[in-house]
Every structure is written in C-alpha cells, then in structure tokens.
C-alpha cells in the first residue's frame, strides 16, 4: 500500500501484482495470430492504458483476461490461479472478482438503473433470487451509494434505455464496482461518447480506481486521454506489445511505431 507501488516504474517488478499474462496467444482462424505471445504483469493499483490502432488485438487481449474470448494458448494468472484453465463454476467465481466496462455500456435496457447496478452481485446469488429480485439489503444499500458516487442517485428507478450515453456508462461503471472487484477491465469505455463526456468518464474511472484501490486495465483509442489518466501505457501494434512504460516516456517515435503513421492524431 505504500506510495512506491503506485508508481508505474515499480509496477512491473512488484511482487504483489494483480494479474500476470504469460505468452498469451489468440488465433481466430488457424495460422492468423491476433495476439502474439503477450507477456505482461499488472500492479495491484493504478491505471494501465492499452493504446494502438483498431484491429490490433487490444480488445481481444482484454476479453481474453476474463475469458469472454478464449485464448489459444498461454496463461492468465489472477489471484493465484490460471484463468485460462478454468471452466464452469470456477471460471464464474474468478469472473466475480473482475469488473468489466464495455464500449457500448451493455446495460440490460429494459431493466431499471438500480437493477443494472445490482447485476454486479449476480455471481453471488442463486438464480431464483435473481429472478425474484431478492437482493440482500446490504447490496441494495451499496448499489444506492455507488449510484450516488457516480452522480446518478436520482435515476435509480429510471429504465436504462432512458439514459444518455454518458449516464449509461456511469451505470456500467457502478455495475463493475458493485462486484467489489480485484481488477477492472474497461474495453474502449469512451469510444461511443463525445469528447467532453469521455473526459468525465475517464475522470470517474480514475477517481474510483484510486479511492477503492482497484487496478484498472483500459483499452483506449485516444492517446491524449491515455497520457492524462494512465499510470502506465502499453502500446500494441499487430498483436504485439511495442511500448510499455510511464506516459511521460511515450514519445513521438513510439507513436509512429505503434500507429505506423500519423493516424493517432485523429
């Protein structure tokens, strides 16, 4: 918990890392590798931003971590187990500790905001209680306070499809935090939002991550946002990590290497 753990430099060699990827590879079609032997360690705190052009495997990488996509080979070490080997109940138990924020929010549109936040506890409830919406009182209380902290306290009973994009993403973040996770994955959380809302959402993620001491891995298109909020930037190109270091160390030449041109300027 000391300050040195938070610094990006010591993150890679810190013994208390939250997640370690070893030689992770993914092929959607045989012979075409989307991820090529990725090995990374993530610290127990701080935001790691993965940048890179679209189609470079950023999303695949993040989705491999909680196995929404199955890696072809490699290890995913999280809380002392290799997630790549897990199936069924053990996999679900591991997923309970990994929150995820999606590009298109992926809220259940026809449920209320508070129900969407409470979805974060589904891994701990039997299905019949989920069906009858019998959530424990302390979960309901926590859902309300999380909604307050993302600034949507008054929207608890609105239906999710009535919210704006930025509001939906706030609900998405509250749902991820509701899991009381040891790691949050954010897959392009700002790509469907306008620039101003994007900043607000990144601000919220950074604030919550710092306040609750949860490490965050975020895929992000926007290099400026990555530099501004991340403690560590990982640059990917064609399925490989080509840069890994603090935002300050990221130079123009690196960006040229990552994006292969001036495309990152948008």
């Amino acid at each position: 918990m000391d300050a040195s753990v938070r610094s990006a430099k010591s993150a890679n060699d810190s013994a208390g890392h939250a997640l370690e990827l070893r030689n992770l590879s993914k092929e959607y079609r045989a012979g075409i590798q989307v991820l090529k032997n990725i090995s990374l360690k993530f610290a127990g705190r701080g935001i790691a931003a993965i940048i890179g052009p679209s189609g470079t495997g950023k999303s695949t990488l993040i989705r491999c971590i909680n196995r929404l996509t199955d890696p072809t080979s490699g290890e995913i070490l999280f809380m002392g187990t290799d997630l790549a080997q897990l199936k069924g109940r053990r996999l679900r138990e591991a997923r309970r500790k990994i929150g995820m924020v999606f590009q298109e929010y992926n809220l259940v549109e026809r449920l209320s905001v508070i129900e969407n936040v409470l979805c974060g506890r589904l891994g701990y409830l039997p299905a019949w209680r989920a069906w009858l919406r019998r959530f424990p009182a302390k979960d309901i209380e926590r859902a309300f306070s999380l909604l307050d902290s993302v600034g949507l306290g008054d929207f608890a009973n609105e239906r999710a499809d009535r919210l704006s994009g930025g509001q939906r993403q706030r609900v998405g973040i509250a749902r991820a935090l509701m899991q009381d996770p040891n790691l949050v994955l954010a897959d392009e959380p700002t790509s469907s939002l306008d620039p101003k809302t994007s900043v607000e959402i990144m601000e919220l993620i950074a604030r919550q991550a710092a306040a609750q001491g949860i490490p965050v891995i975020v895929n992000i298109h926007n290099v400026e946002l990555a530099k501004r909020y991340a403690d560590r930037v990982i640059g990917m190109s064609k399925g490989e990590v080509v840069f890994d270091g603090p935002p300050k160390a990221l130079e123009h030449s690196h960006l040229l290497q990552i994006y292969g041109g001036e495309g990152w300027l948008e």
Partner: peptide
Amino acid sequence: AIRATGAPFLSVLVI
C-alpha cells in the same frame, strides 16, 4: 455483460 459478472447461466437467462 451479465456473463462477465460471473453470474450463473440461469441468472443470465433470467436477468
């Protein structure tokens, strides 16, 4: 998204 929270399959169906 519900699957990613670690919800059992029946809960995914229900929710």
